[in-house]
Design a binder for these strands. Sequence first.
DNA 1: CTGTTAGCGCCTTCAG
DNA 2: CTGAAGGCGCTAACAG
Lengths: 334, 334
Amino acid sequence: MQPSGRVTIGDVARTAGVSVATVSKVINGRYGVAAATFSRVQEVIDDLGYESSLVARSLRSHRTNVIGILVAEFEPFSTEILKGTSAAIAGTGYELLAYSGGGRPGGNVGWERRYLSRLSGTLIDGAILVTPTVVDADSNIPVVAIDPHTGPTGLPTVDSDNLTGAILAVEHLLRLGHRRIGFLSGRPDLESSRLREQGYRTALEAAGIPLDPTLVRLGGYRVESALGPATELLNLEQRPTAIFAANDLSAISTMRAAAALGLSVPEDLSVIGFDNVPESALTQPPLTTISQPIQEMGSRGIDLLIGLMNGTVDPGTHVRLPTALVDRGSCRAI
Amino acid sequence: MQPSGRVTIGDVARTAGVSVATVSKVINGRYGVAAATFSRVQEVIDDLGYESSLVARSLRSHRTNVIGILVAEFEPFSTEILKGTSAAIAGTGYELLAYSGGGRPGGNVGWERRYLSRLSGTLIDGAILVTPTVVDADSNIPVVAIDPHTGPTGLPTVDSDNLTGAILAVEHLLRLGHRRIGFLSGRPDLESSRLREQGYRTALEAAGIPLDPTLVRLGGYRVESALGPATELLNLEQRPTAIFAANDLSAISTMRAAAALGLSVPEDLSVIGFDNVPESALTQPPLTTISQPIQEMGSRGIDLLIGLMNGTVDPGTHVRLPTALVDRGSCRAI
DNA sequence: CTGTTAGCGCCTTCAG
DNA sequence: CTGAAGGCGCTAACAG
C-alpha cells in the first residue's frame, strides 16, 4: 500500500509502468492488451487492493449496474421492501443502493424528486421509489413506484389491494359483533390512506351502520402522530368498542394509548391494524391486522424495473397484490 | 423543463444567463454574488428543479454529507440496524446510503473491503460496516464496525454481549429442567458464533453436565443452511429435549424442522434463539430468544462515526451493549 | 498493442 | 462581482 489514501487507477498505472488507459482496459476486460501486460497489471491491482471508484466510473460511462431504492426513512415498511428487493436481486448482476435522507420525516415533501435528481443520470441505472408522494413520469432513468401515494401514474407501480383489505378489517370487527368502530386514518393526501378510509365507510354502510364522524380521527401513519388522536377516541363519552387503525404503527400507538388509560386489549377494546409488518407480532397481545405481501412488493418492483430497463415491460404496467386478514390476539367478540 | 434529460448546472447557468461558477456559488451560499443575480439564479434553480449531482460534486469536493452503511444483504438483522441509524441520523445534516451487493450471500468474503473501496474517498464521508468479516483499519475515511465477525480491531466497534447472552439462554433451559440440550452453531469463522458456542459450553459445565459432541451441529446462521443440521439433531436416537440455536433464523428453521417431523414446540421440543429480530415473534409459538438491542447498536454506530469524524471519539472505542432473555412461548419445563 | 487526448458534471482558484 | 481554466478518477475514441 504505497499512497496512504485511496489507491486510484493512476497509482496502479504508475506502479505497473503503463498508462491509465491500459489499466482501464485490463479492469474492463477489453481486448487489445498483451497477455504479459495484462497479468502484470492484474498483479499490481491485487497487490494494491485497487477497486475502481463507482463515482468516477459512473460519471464517465453512465452505467453502473446499481439499482437505487429511494425511501424517505428506514422504518418497518420500507425495510421489508428492502428485504424483498435484496432477495430478488440475487443473480441479476445488479447491486443495490438504498438512499434515505436525514430527518424531517413527512415534512420534506418532494424528497423523491430530490433524491432521484441527485442520484440519477450517473450513479444508478434505475430506481425504485418507495411510497412516493409526487411522481413525475419524466426522468432520464427507468423508475418504478411501490405503493405510490397518489393515484395511477405514467410509470409502472406495485401496490396492494387497500380497499378490499380495509373492508376485510371492518367486516372482521362486524362479525365479532362490534358496532361502534373507530377509525384512525392515515394522511388525506395519500392514496392508500384514502382507500382504507373508503373501505371503512363502505363496509359500515353495507352493514347498515350510519357513519359517526366523531369516531374518525387523523392518525398520520406514525407512532407519535397517532398517539394523541387514539387517546381522544378512547376518551370519548361513548367509547368505541373497536378501532381500525390505518396502519400497524398507529395500531401499536392505539394499544399504548389504551394501556395508558388502563384499558386492556382485547377485553375492553379490539384493535386491528394494516400492513402486517413484523413488529405487529411483537405487541402484547399480538396485533390482528391486514397483511400486505410487502417483501413480495419489493421483489416484484425489482422484476418490473429490470424488465423496464430491458424493454420487456410496458411503462403502463400496474401490479396489484392481494391483502388478507391475519387473525392474532387483539380482537374479540362482544 | 427544457432539456428532457437531467438538468445540469450548465443548463441553469445558460437559462439564467450567467456562468456555471456563479451558479455554483449560489448553490453553496458563497459570498461574492450580487443580490439580484442571486435571486434570479435561485429562481431558475427552483424553476428547473435542479439538484446537483451527488456524483459530480463528490468527485470534486470530496465531501458529501452522506454516510454509508455497508451490508452484505438486507435481512432481518441488517435492516434493524438500518432502522437504528435512520433514527439517529435525524437532525445531524447527514444522509444515509445503504449499499448491498447482489446475491452470493456468505460466499463473497471481503465484500466490505470491496464496497468500501468503491464508495469511499468520493461518495461517502464515513462508513458503518455491518457484520464485516475482515476489517482493515486502514481506510481513507472514518469507519465504524457493528458486530464485527472477528475479534477486537483497530477501529471503533459496537457489539453486544454474546457470551453472557448465550449463558443466559442455556441457563434458562437448565432452569426448566432440560439436560439434553442441542446447539445449532453459527459459523466457526465468526466471533459472535464462537462466543455463543463458548457460552453454551460454559453454562453446561457450570451445571455439571458433560458436553455431548453429537448434540452440536453447524447451523450457519441462515434459514436454509440450518434446516438440515436441525433435522439431524431431531432424528438423533436420543433426541435433545431442547435446542439452543445460535441465531433466530436458525431457530426458526429448527421449528420448521420439528414441524416437518411431527414434533410440536414446546411440548416435544423447547427452542431458544438469539438476536430477537422482529420475525422471532411471528413464529408459532412465538420464539423465546436472547435479545440484542439491534436498533440501538445502529444508532450508537452513527454516534460513534460522527464523533470519529469530528475527532471527539477515540478510534479505540468499543461499545458493548447488554443482552437479555425474552421469554415467549417456545420453551417449557420438563 | 499501447499511449494520448478528450471530456462526464461539478467546484475552486485566479484573473478580469 | 463574474467568467475562464483546470482537475477530481475514469473511459472511449483515436493515434502511434
